[in-house]
Amino acid sequence: MTKNIDKEMVDLFRTKAELVSATVAEVADMDAALQYAVELCDSKEACQLLLSGCEENLSGGAEALCETIAQKTICAPELPKKQFDQLKKLSDDKGFNCIAKGMRENLGGIDIGFTRVNLGIAETGSLVLNSCKEEVRIATMLAEIHVAVLKKSDIMADAFAVSDYLKKEMGKEADYHAFITGASRTADIERVLALGVHGPLELHILLLEG
């Protein structure tokens, strides 16, 4: 079941995603993707918001929420068991907490949300993510960094090319899908762009061969 990889489309996807400040990297296989996530977690500050959020003067209640963050955490909901076990092992070695669920106990925020995404849209550098599982929604919103794995052959030309897929999903009794393009952003104060207003400060897209 090998699908064709359109190199031009992959390049366009990459260019467009980078334009909205996503980090795009290539990985040979899932092992490499898991490795990437753990290394990224290792190299990032314990809580990036310590630099720019927690250290700020917050009201009592908001500060209390910050204090629930004890240890670096990676959440990877919806990963096949074998891949999750592998991620857990890599995380354990580093002393990170690795979870597949329980995001509601981690609403203060986590370090990395790790997902495989369903499709990519080249025209806008967007990811199409099935977010029916609440854990997926919360993990990809409350993580400081979202790491998303996308198969190159799943990159489509534009939104109209994903419409057949999406219509089928939206026709189900319950459905929640997202197009995600770059990190969470705002320009609400003096039109100055700031990333990570509610969701991730960074989006890393790992392009998987095949």
């Binding site: 029916c132 929640y176 393009t181």
Partner: peptide, 26 residues
């Protein structure tokens, strides 16, 4: 609106989705 090709998030919602804080989980 802003000269963006697309916004950071476009969300499509149908029906009653999973929600752990709801009584019946939906």
């Amino acid at each position: 609106a802003t000269g963006q090709a697309i916004t950071s998030y476009v969300t499509w919602i149908t029906g009653r989705n999973e929600c752990a804080s709801a009584e019946d989980g939906k």
